[in-house]
Write a protein that binds this DNA or RNA. Structure first.
Lengths: 344, 344
DNA sequence: CTGAAAGCGCTTACAG
DNA sequence: CTGAAAGCGCTTACAG
């Protein structure tokens, strides 16, 4: 009655042989394999993942935890994860989890704790101790993409060096002669120094200090939501105040930078003549806005996270534990028309 | 050895009773249920979805097919789907499928055909006959969100009335006295009349005809990618040509409209004094851009799609087959500062 | 290289 | 209300 029994009967072999022929595990005579495959094709047989998982203990399914889907970085990462997992024959089960709350607890304590996923990839989510512990207790490998710092212990981490990014963006502006140079940081940058926004802020402060412009008076950080409207609102306030205005802004993301560009235009401030702006991301709109930015590759990071997780699951070609662990993912400064030398 | 056996032993009942107490199916004495629940909590028992699916035939998992994650409408729909499914105790398995190709075939013929998903929700994807047939053969309910027209047969469909949307947006501009009124349509609008972009174009042409401005000469449609850079490029070409310029643009989506606004600014054309622009979506950036738009609720549409699919799976409260089938989902015109009466 | 048998962890008739 | 037993559809030692 079971489907594979039908295939076996049609091919004139046992279920065991049919299973081996179809899965490629264990040796089967070439001709037998052909017969089994023909039989399977004939009746449109597709293995039941549930039944297979039950005995193998593997689901070929990865749980992805992500706070947003509709911000560029996260969307790109998600697409990268999806495509890579799919071609490895894995499913991606999505958990859109933001902030705290009962929904979040349910995801970690029920959905992800079940035997439905082989491992978990968390994108830009600060995992609480308790959440990590819950996954560890169930023996789920965890890969964290973005934010935090590669700790000695804890889950495998992957990401760009956000502090270096902040430093690089700031140094670009300093080298152009800017001294009134404000950072539009993401919400929580000061409060959570190991978050993405916290590290970028830190990089800004590093560079400002090195240039003798900090800590007192000359360095200024304004926090805002890391979206285009967030950047717009913050820049409107920042640039609209009478008195001496900054000549340069380092925005914590390209979306924030786009908002700042629009705010400047609205106020009649010319970018880049009166105001230089640099972002972070390499957003697909950056070219259209002429935005100078520190580019990263979120979809490439998604791919890297999948490679890592598959390796943790023992699927990788190399049995090497974590070859590239620790090395930050690549970024580069792309100079466009939103930055120029400081006005005299 | 099985986990539920441990719970049963600890509670001093049989596996059958433990199962009934935990799942809530079948009657169990109140006190027995309490004992079982305490035992389950004590050893941290979580039911194995694979084992349960194998016997019930239900996975409590829905496959979602979506072409983009990083365009506003799609991202919002996805979030709406995720949240609603989660609170119904369902998983969402994501298939990011765009255009044709072997990857797409694999999704329909292997991934979705397996017994891993109970049903499929396709968002803004034109399903081929063959793809629908593949799902039907496996008895998978299918819900299609967006695009197409509710056919008598075929899968359940859900969406706004895109033709009415195109008409409404156009009429808003006509009523303001515009006669040179161009439509920035999505790619493929003319070639695929039942696609979202095709229906919006049709609505535009309807309204123009009704106003005596079509078919000859006065109606003009330019196709472009439905993104901000797409709108920017198209508008740059449209507005930069010497000679008489349109006084109004109906953009097929808000993102296209944002691009058009930027193009106008770049060319020194004042919005709305020299050019009125209306979009479609109710994008979260619309307010910041002051964009007049026909608003829809993608996350609400995601919720509606989940309701429908659960009903098809026999989970809905009402056994009513498809109560709201056919009725288009709501939209409304939101007037902001990007449109005004035509210049004299 | 192939087969018979056990078993993965549950749920659900069937009895009682 | 509860339990013993069968069975969901596979895979994998274990023999041969």
């Amino acid at each position: 009655m079971t489907a594979i029994a039908d295939v076996a009967r049609l091919a004139g072999v046992s279920k065991a042989t049919a299973s081996r022929a179809l899965s490629g595990r264990g040796h089967v005579a070439e001709e037998t394999r052909r017969r089994v495959e023909a039989a399977a094709a004939e009746i449109g047989y597709i293995v039941s993942p549930d039944a297979a998982s039950l005995v193998t203990g593997r689901t070929k399914n990865i749980g992805v935890v992500i706070p947003f889907v509709n911000r560029w970085f996260f969307g790109e990462v998600l697409e990268g994860l999806e495509r890579t997992l799919l071609s490895a024959g894995y499913d991606l089960t999505l958990y859109n989890v933001d902030g705290a709350g009962p929904d979040r607890d349910r995801v970690f304590e029920f959905f992800l704790a079940r035997k439905r996923v082989d491992a978990v990839i968390a994108v830009g989510v600060d995992l609480a101790e308790r959440e990590l512990a819950a996954l560890e207790r169930r023996d789920k490998p965890v890969v964290v993409l973005g934010g935090g710092e590669a700790g000695a212990l804890g889950p495998a981490r992957l990401g760009i060096d956000d502090r270096a990014v902040g430093q690089l963006a700031t140094e670009h502006l300093l080298q152009l002669g800017h001294t009134r140079l404000v950072h539009l940081a993401g919400d929580g940058a000061a409060a959570r120094p190991l978050s993405v926004q916290g590290l970028r802020r830190h990089g800004y402060l590093d560079a400002m200090s090195a240039a003798g412009l900090a800590p007192r008076g000359r360095a200024e950080v304004v926090e805002t939501e890391m979206t285009m409207p967030g950047g717009y609102e913050a820049a409107l306030q920042l640039l609209g105040q009478p008195g001496r205005r900054p000549t340069a802004v380092f925005a914590a993301s390209d979306e924030v930078a786009f908002g700042a560009i629009r705010a400047a235009e609205r106020l009649g401030i010319s970018v880049p003549h009166d105001l230089s702006i640099v972002g972070v991301d390499g957003h697909e709109y950056a070219e259209m806005f002429g935005l100078t930015t520190v580019e990263q590759s979120p979809s490439g990071q998604g791919r890297a996270a999948v490679d890592l997780v598959l390796r943790l699951l023992g699927e990788g070609a190399e049995p090497d534990p974590l070859p590239d662990s620790g090395a930050p993912l690549p970024t580069r400064l792309v100079v466009r028309t939103s930055t120029m030398r400081a006005p005299l």
